[in-house]
Amino acid sequence: MNKNGNIGVTSENIFPIIKKFLYSDHEIFLRELVSNAVDATQKLKTLASVGEFKGDLGDLTVHVKFDENTITISDRGIGMTAEEIDKYINQIAFSGAEEFVEKYKNDAAAIIGHFGLGFYSSFMVSKKVEIVTKSYKDAPAVKWSCDGTPTYTLEETEKADRGTDIILYIDDENKDFLNQQKIQELLTKYCRFLPVPIAFGKKQEWKDGKYVDTDEDNIINDTTPAWVRKPSELKDEDYIKFYHELYPMADDPLFWIHLNVDYPFHLTGILYFPRIKSNIDLHRNKIQLYCNQVFVTDSVEGIVPEFLTLLHGVIDSPDIPLNV
């Protein structure tokens, strides 16, 4: 099967629009792609739990790798068939590029999430993107490729195991992302509490006067942060330890509240009452907003009530859009 086609958008200008209007937030491409990989993994676990997937789950770690030209995000989740690629990747619902630009010209961040453009954020930093994927279903592996125009290719390929590899060929303007420290910073910022292990590089050990890589994956995230656990499972030391993970330079908090609200919307989190020494402390540490354990923002003005802005901690809700 070889297929050439046009991505289902109403204007050929969609990719320049993505690059231009998402440019100020172009680092979020990594958040979006890693989140997608985690979603695919979680879906497979759900299918297994209800008996629709009977195979061996095996290692479900999401891997992020890079070389001098590319960044690759790999998962062993549900994968996609050729038909699903066509449905979820090739069709983007737009009412028209002009209306799109006019509506969001002053609010670049609102594009992501609102139109389901998470995957397409990859084109903010890439001159070409490839998807190599194999579904958990009995279907051939396929390779999708696009160079930032509405034209794509889709063909059968070889892939040993289920799951998806997203390969980004980073463009010349964004080569700074091909840097271990930069990628580590972004993964720590956005992905450090995701519910599936995220591996980036190898753990290191001190040997013969220098740090060398070991064979063990470097897992960058805590899959069960304090706020997703039951209060009965946590001691005071656990709450204080988590507080210092969020705010390493802060003094111990006075006390805290563990949140679990189901109505009128679902919300979990931990709010800490800090020790305040000066006016500077009032603005140094902020509440961090998460959506399903994905970091969204710590600019909470206008999102949480003003009287809560003096507190520290985490609020997590699936009702918080990724574009707040």
Rank of each mutant, 00 (worst) to 15 (best):
T10L: 15
N13D: 13
P16N: 07
K19Q: 15
S24L: 09
D25N: 13
H26N: 15
E27M: 04
E27S: 13
I28W: 01
E32F: 02
E32R: 01
V34S: 03
V34C: 09
S35N: 15
A40Y: 10
L44W: 10
K45Y: 05
V50G: 03
G55L: 02
G55E: 06
G58V: 03
G58Q: 09
D59C: 01
L60D: 04
E68H: 13
E68N: 15
N69Y: 13
T70W: 07
T70L: 11
I71N: 04
I73C: 01
I73T: 02
D75W: 07
D75T: 06
G77K: 07
M80D: 06
T81L: 09
E84H: 05
K87L: 12
I89N: 01
F94D: 15
S95P: 00
S95C: 00
G96P: 03
A97M: 02
A97R: 01
E98Y: 13
E99H: 06
F100Y: 12
E102K: 12
K103P: 03
Y104L: 12
Y104N: 09
A110V: 00
H114Q: 14
F115M: 07
L117W: 14
L117I: 11
Y120N: 06
Y136P: 00
K137W: 11
K137I: 02
D138M: 02
A139S: 15
T153Q: 14
E155K: 15
E155A: 14
E158V: 09
A160N: 13
A160H: 04
D161A: 11
R162S: 07
T164L: 08
D165P: 01
I167H: 08
I167E: 10
E173N: 15
N174E: 01
L178N: 10
N179G: 08
N179S: 15
L187M: 07
K189N: 08
F193E: 11
F200P: 11
F200D: 07
K207P: 03
K207A: 14
D213R: 10
D215L: 08
N218H: 12
I219T: 11
T224W: 03
A226K: 02
A226V: 11
A226E: 05
P231N: 04
E233W: 13
E233N: 12
D236I: 06
D238Q: 04
Y239H: 11
I240M: 09
E245P: 00
L246D: 00
M249W: 13
D252R: 06
D252T: 13
P253D: 10
P253W: 11
I257H: 09
L259D: 00
N260A: 08
Y263W: 14
P264G: 10
I270G: 05
P274N: 04
P274Q: 06
I276R: 03
S278A: 12
L282P: 04
R284Y: 10
N285W: 06
K286T: 07
K286M: 04
C291L: 04
F295G: 08
V296T: 07
T297E: 05
S299T: 08
E301A: 14
I303P: 00
I303T: 01
V304Q: 01
E306G: 01
L308V: 03
L311S: 09
I315H: 01
P318G: 04
D319G: 07
P321S: 04
P321D: 06
N323A: 02
